[in-house]
Amino acid sequence: MAAEAPAIDPIHQFNIERILPLHIGGIDASYTNASLFMTIILLAVTALMVLGTSGHHIVPTRVQAAAEMAYEFVASTVRDTVGQEGMRFFPFVFSLFMFVLFSNLIGLIPGAYTVTSQIVVTFAFAALVIGLVIAYGFYKNGLHFLHLFVPSGVPKLLLPFIMLIEVISFISRPISLSVRLFANMLAGHITLKVFGAFVGMLLGAGAFAWLSPLPLLGIVALSALELLVAFLQAYVFAILTCVYLNDALHPGH
């Protein structure tokens, strides 16, 4: 927004631009800035988890210690939430957590693109999780999986209503899961952008220019908050995935 008037355009940062247009069978598969940052996330996580552990040190290096910390953090989350038999989903939950976490964190770098600020990405993850829960739930428990919607110890008269509520809550899971992450990222980045624009506007406002450090301080505080949110949302995503997978493993309430 150099040539234009310094209007606040906090949405601009979410625009997707094609870097390498590509169409396969009429479907747009262009390599965009979002794809670029997905690649960066992949490379960053790989650097941490694959290159960082290539030394096999008994006494870990810093990078290896970080990789081990990530491993044990997610492993204990899965073990505590789903139990030992849930460890078969550990690679999935771990990949999900790392992808979302790195997307959130890399997105905080000024100028970087936040992959998880796209509803299609978060919804794809949520759909993947719920799809996995349904598929594994039926595979593991057969029709017994439907007991998920029939809580035990409920009066017969209330059962249809309870079942209706349970079904609705199950259906709303992918929506809440995806919207929570998407909205958090979107709102945080818009707020940061708005505050940043305030600084610029105040600097050009003559007599009020001395006020411009205030929104700058706001950005500093907000960045700290966003750092927390970035980690927290990745954690929430991972732990809710674990909770839903627990339903697939143990459908009875």
């Binding site: 590509l22 479907i27 979002a34």
Partner: peptide, 21 residues
Amino acid sequence: HYSSQLIWLVITFGLLYWLMS
């Protein structure tokens, strides 16, 4: 851009899952 995002998400996340697991 949904289709391109989904395609690249599948590629990158698939690769990530494969590398991790």
